[in-house]
Design a protein around this nucleic acid. Structure first.
Lengths: 173, 173
DNA sequence: TTTTATTTTCAATAATTATTGAAAGTTTTA
DNA sequence: TAAAACTTTCAATAATTATTGAAAATAAAA
């Protein structure tokens, strides 16, 4: 059961999947996880674990782990196909939704812990010149992080149209 | 030649350096690179390769590689200390500048190549239903990526005050 | 020039992270 | 209930990435 139908198109899809996988690593994302998502994204129908295994040439365990992680990130869904016993998976095709979901998750997992730690470190019982300077750096780090966090919050809440047209225009001036 | 003077403060600095290092890995940044930068950021004076080696307990080669990379990213500078033959290094203390520099570099290294590849893939010689759908996904990915790229451009050009107050307020409504 | 101080490189190695595959677990069907 | 279909887990292993350290290169001083 392959998702492929035309040659040139197939090549382009494969290239997209490969490219996405290698780009992912520079963002601290597992290569296979990115590839599985890319595959589901360009697939016209939900795929089973076996479909993914065959297409990406990876083991059952690997597929399972990465599909779970993607579901955990909220960017892949289980699908029930009538007449089929096994599970199928699909990725939402709304890219703005995808962007918002990823942003939301990374914010929660990576930015919020940073803010927490920076705030903790601020509480030093020391008022020397050097300590003041250190606290200043921490405070500035907090400030930037909080601002970015706030911007991401707004982006998550924004609907597609607003973010696309309105937002970019406002930004310009 | 150690940069340390007070106990509690010293602990906090160490904790900050360690924490930064481990957080960095989830952003696809080398742990040591992040630690070296953190160390230079909280240091009151420029440090030599040996200072860094001692404090972080890492090899000369490792220090050299990572300091070069940081200089390459534009967030660490060489300093010439009078009466000293060896090189010293320092990190700029302006966190907004740091944020802008990092954003600029990641944009160049990671976002712009994505846009290029997505555009390349668009050029498929196929008009089937499936091809249309694939092109739609690619187009949407381009759209989001370009928008994010644009926002980052504005952020880079924006001065601290504008980004902090004006921007966040605009975003709110 | 030669010596000495310092930086850079890079093959070898260590540490980390990802992947396999088979066994154990679960759910469905008969 | 047992057998079949499928999913999950995880110890072993592979692949990747980071680090060392000593030799080569470079730069400054004598």
């Amino acid at each position: 059961m392959l998702y492929i139908c035309c040659m040139k198109l197939d090549e382009a899809k494969i290239k997209y999947i490969q490219t996405w996988g290698s780009l992912a690593t520079s963002w601290g994302i597992n290569k296979t996880m990115a590839q599985v998502h890319a595959l589901l994204l360009v697939s016209t129908k939900p795929l089973s674990a076996e479909d993914i295994m065959e297409t990406l040439q990876i083991s059952r365990g690997n597929v399972n782990m990465n599909v779970r992680a993607l579901i955990d990130w909220g960017i892949v869904n289980k699908e029930f196909v009538i007449g089929e016993r096994k599970e199928f998976f699909s990725a939402g095709k709304d890219i703005w939704e995808l962007f918002k979901q990823i942003t939301k998750e990374r914010k929660k997992r990576e930015i919020e812990p940073v803010i927490k730690i920076l705030d903790e470190l601020q509480l030093i019982d020391d008022n020397s010149e050097e300590a003041q300077q250190f606290k200043k750096v921490l405070g500035d780090l907090s400030s930037v992080t909080n601002t970015v966090n706030g911007i991401l919050d707004k982006a998550i809440k924004a609907d597609e149209h607003w973010l696309l047209s309105n937002f970019t225009k406002v930004i310009k001036k």
